[in-house]
């Protein structure tokens, strides 16, 4: 099997394996930040801006809430194996951006280890594999005590 890693969606995050970042956009007129990127019109009703610059988002945030998928989601979700294994989904609040962003939690993280308010960090991880290699996506991973600031 090939080992190429490619993003599940183009332009939503950097493929930096060590320090990945989500890529939002910032309106050059009013400063509003959007994720996923807005590139045509600003959603601020007081702003007629249409020019955006890329805005990498904070790599860390606080867990706002979390849940699980105990049942396999329907397509276009792509199963990772024959038998569905439950995984967690996190909503993480970014302090600087004052926004909440969703992401899967790596499969090996136990639900019991998650607590609202804990610090989470963005990583890249496998979404699924196909004939051409690994398809990767961003995920939220708990910051371990050792790494904590």
């Amino acid at each position: 099997m090939a080992t190429a890693r490619r993003p599940a969606v183009a332009g939503w995050f950097t493929m930096d394996e060590e320090q990945p970042q989500l890529l939002g956009s910032r309106c050059t007129a009013c400063g509003a930040v959007f994720f996923p990127k807005q590139e045509s019109f600003c959603h601020n009703p007081a702003c007629a801006g249409g020019d955006f610059e890329e805005a990498p988002l904070s790599r860390r945030g606080r867990l706002w809430s979390y849940t699980t998928n105990h049942y396999q989601p329907p397509p276009p979700y792509v199963p990772r194996g024959d038998a569905h294994r439950p995984f967690a989904i996190a909503a993480v609040e970014l302090e600087a951006e004052k926004m909440v962003v969703l992401g899967q939690v790596p499969e090996q993280v136990k639900l019991e280890s998650l607590r609202t308010g804990m610090e989470m960090e963005l990583i890249l991880d496998t979404l699924f594999e196909d004939d051409e290699g690994e398809v990767v996506v961003w995920k939220w991973n708990p910051v371990s005590e050792a790494d904590g600031r």
Binding site: S65, Y66, T67, P74, V78, I89, L102, T116
Partner: peptide, 25 residues
Amino acid sequence: WLRFRLLGATNPVYFGLYARRRMDL
């Protein structure tokens, strides 16, 4: 389409997030 593809975020996932938030808050 993308929320199913990239997150596997079914509707109950959102309901679960709101519910857990109530418990913790």
